[in-house]
């Protein structure tokens, strides 16, 4: 007992203070944390609170000499009752609701194929990840402006050569919604591939070996072993990609400008148009909080589903 207590004494003191360094550990920890804390307050918490406060005012940047008045929930009410915002909200939900499952299914399929591949595995891994390395604006130019050009673009040229009618990729409101999703799927499926491939390669081999011994088919091994074990990875991938998709703006802004009409305008683009370009800080702030609420609901739903269906540990 005596030996034990004397052995602990210097260790405990070393946690409190190292005389040779002069700075107590507790203070030194705070010094280390301080830059990150300042950064979080300055870049996250302050804008968060500032935007919230702005949403309760009538602040318009281009009404330069006018006073800024507190108007309570009036701006929130005008956002929530705005048919403009209703349309962009549905557009955003449609985009996420279609792009995310497509990217999920395609990503998992390609990852399974790559995981099982015995030939050219490295090449195809890099090949499938390449879209993730492109700038979204370059993707828009490559796919939207060149490939999908409606009059003389190569895709319509091929399709019409095969006897199909001309597809109005960007000019028909319904088709434009799909086109935006397709461009996003082209670029961001790579992220899902990356996540699922990493997940598949980290799975324990024992359950698969046991299943083979028990005579399980490949489909059964996927259905009853791979899929449940990939749950945590799938959850992470859906959350990251889903939250990112809610904020989509670059593809839409450069490909359709939100049109035709309002067919492809997302909430983020509305916030950018009204708050940043238009100077209507109050409306833009309230609209950005609407987006935040949407994303919070999405996150809650994913977490709820996870708790119900996903096995979190092996």
């Amino acid at each position: 007992m005596q030996q034990n207590s004397t052995a602990k004494q210097p260790m405990a003191e070393s946690h409190k203070k190292r005389p040779s360094q002069g700075i107590p550990d507790v203070i030194f920890k705070w010094i280390l944390i301080l830059p990150a804390t300042i950064a979080v307050i300055a870049l996250l918490i302050f804008p968060f609170m500032f935007t919230l406060a702005a949403s309760f005012t009538d602040w318009h940047l281009f009404n330069l000499n006018a006073p800024i008045n507190f108007i309570g929930f009036k701006m929130w009410a005008s956002v929530l009752t705005s048919s403009y915002i209703h349309t962009t909200t549905w557009n955003t939900i449609f985009f996420v609701g279609l792009a995310l499952p497509l990217e999920f299914l395609l990503g998992m399929t390609v990852a399974l194929a790559l995981n099982a591949a015995t030939f050219g595995r490295t090449f195809f891994r890099v090949f499938f990840l390449m879209p993730l390395m492109f700038n979204p604006i370059a993707v828009v130019f490559l796919i939207g402006k060149l490939m999908l050009q409606e009059d003389i673009g190569p895709i319509n040229d091929v399709l019409m050569g095969l006897g199909f009618p001309r597809i109005m990729w960007l000019s028909d409101p319904s088709m434009a919604k799909i086109t935006i999703v397709l461009v996003d799927v082209w670029q961001h499926t790579a992220f899902m591939i990356l996540m699922f491939l990493a997940g598949l390669q980290s799975l324990p081999q024992e359950p698969f070996e046991a299943a083979v011994v028990d005579g399980a088919t490949a489909v059964q091994r996927f259905r009853f072993i791979s899929l449940p074990l990939l749950g945590p990875v799938a959850l992470t991938a859906v959350l990251i990609r889903g939250l990112d998709a809610f904020k989509v703006v670059d593809i839409i802004y450069s490909l359709t400008g939100g049109g035709p009409g309002q067919a492809t305008e997302s909430v983020t683009l509305t916030v950018f148009r009204t708050g940043v370009k238009g100077g209507d800080i109050a409306f833009g702030s309230a609209a950005s909080y609407l987006l935040l609420i949407l994303m919070a609901v999405f996150t809650a739903l994913v977490l709820f589903a996870t708790r119900k269906w996903v096995r979190v540990s092996y």
């Binding site: 318009h60 281009f62 009404n63 330069l64 000019s171 028909d172 409101p173 939100g258 049109g259 035709p260 009409g261 309002q262 067919a263 148009r273 009204t274 370009k277 238009g278 100077g279 209507d280």
Partner: peptide, 23 residues
């Protein structure tokens, strides 16, 4: 006139909606 970016956006939206057959 002041706020021309918002006037521009609103008119472009209306024109685009009509041209697209949405209204």
């Amino acid at each position: 006139i002041p706020g021309w970016t918002q006037y521009r956006d609103a008119l472009e939206l209306a024109v685009s909606k009509a041209l697209a057959g949405e209204a």
